[in-house]
Design a protein around this nucleic acid. Structure first.
Lengths: 228, 228
DNA sequence: GCAAAAGTGTTTGGGATACACCCATGC
DNA sequence: GCATGGGTGTATCCCAAACACTTTTGC
């Protein structure tokens, strides 16, 4: 246990925010990273993140920093944002004690890396070496994402407005890293009353066209029955 | 959105920690509060909490502060500690921007309010007016606690080493605020393989003695099947 | 016609729910 | 013997899991 000295003036730790931004790329769950331009961990890959100033909420700081460092506009381009956990071990930043409030965000195709930002997207299962404890943070986010998909309609964030049932199933399979039975998956998901048929079909390739579906609601909802 | 001025020196927000400490008192879910000795919110009831200094983890700060302000030793007297959420709205503290990392802890009978601490325990359903956004924090903690009881063996924290099935069921009922069917509850809980019979009985009052049970493991575990 | 993905039903087992009576004790 | 809480079993329903063939299209 640590003893605070009341006789000294109060000095707070540095406060930072970090974002785990997920996207499906060719059905592979992937994470947005930046290459650090400065020490510490210069040239290493890291989550987009930075300092949270006084008077700024963590959400505002995140929005500002992710736009600046990775060229991604969280509010405009991403569909789902959730606070994850606050990492606070004293040694996690070699420059001194920094407490990081972490967030998870999910999106479909979005632009990134405008201008001079060194941003890239890596598959979750094939990450480069990462700065700080960012590998742990991504693992934590991935677990939380799986949990969210089992009891909410959060997949919505990964799909186009209209999508086929195969695309939906593939999204689940990519995120969970395991296959689902096609008939059972469809029966269960349709039974949840979250999506509705459209009159459109997706035609591509030499095979039967696939019916397109839409979510009935685009806001986050909890499911009556959970998924696994 | 907030624009950070890079030309000015970086000033972090104040960092605080707050604890929601739960206990069952006569089968009523209750929470530990202190009466604030100073402004702001002087004499109001509030969660035990305080400043987190540089070089101190939030866990260490919480341990120190809860002992000091409420006379409760988290590490020694409480069974379960979990980080909840980080509250960061700029206006939550009238003195200036303070970001609070909140925790939930659970225990059985513990001592509190040693010395000059103005601590007391209030039923969750009958709280006094609370300082800051502490009412929201308690509501958040209560929701999380219910979720935890459905998929982990966290009830453990509220019970004596040996307990009757009725005590176990009553704990669930108190926390969820609704009754459970006695036969189904027993069937389900025994089927989870978390607890074992002892050879002891609890005898009290003019009725059949109740068999005492123990948890097989005292560490937190996830359940194979969930509870509701 | 053939390759490729879309689409579709049934059976089986297990857990969830609903429900009512006997048991052991103290007084 | 009676009041009090402890303890027990069965029937029904619904969901989960396993499993294979037909349909529609482009070429």
């Amino acid at each position: 246990m640590n003893h605070m000295k009341y006789t000294e003036p109060y000095v707070p730790p540095t406060l930072t925010v970090d974002a785990v931004v997920f996207q499906l790329i060719d059905n592979v769950l992937s994470v947005l990273l930046i290459q650090r331009p400065n020490e510490p961990f210069k040239d290493n890959w890291a989550l987009p993140g930075g300092y949270n100033a006084q008077g700024e909420t963590t959400h505002d700081a995140l929005q500002r920093i992710v736009l600046e460092k990775a060229g991604v506009d969280l509010d405009r381009d991403l569909d789902y944002l959730e606070q994850l956990y606050t990492f606070d071990t004293v040694a996690r930043d070699p420059r001194g004690h920094a407490v990081s409030v972490t967030y998870m965000a999910c999106g479909k195709e979005f632009n990134y890396g405008d201008g001079n930002a060194h941003a890239a997207i890596f598959p979750v299962d094939n990450l480069p070496d990462l700065a700080y404890d960012h590998k742990d943070i991504i693992a934590y986010a991935h677990d939380r994402l799986k949990a969210k998909l089992t009891y909410t309609n959060a997949v919505h964030a990964f799909l186009n407005t209209q999508f086929t049932l195969t695309e939906l199933q593939t999204a689940y399979e990519s995120i969970f890293g395991r296959p689902f039975d096609k008939r059972n998956f469809r029966k269960k998901f349709l039974g949840l009353d979250l999506i509705k048929e459209t009159e459109s079909f997706k035609r591509e390739g030499a095979h039967r066209p696939a019916r397109l579906y839409e979510f009935k609601s685009s806001t986050l909802e909890s499911l009556s029955r959970s998924f696994d």
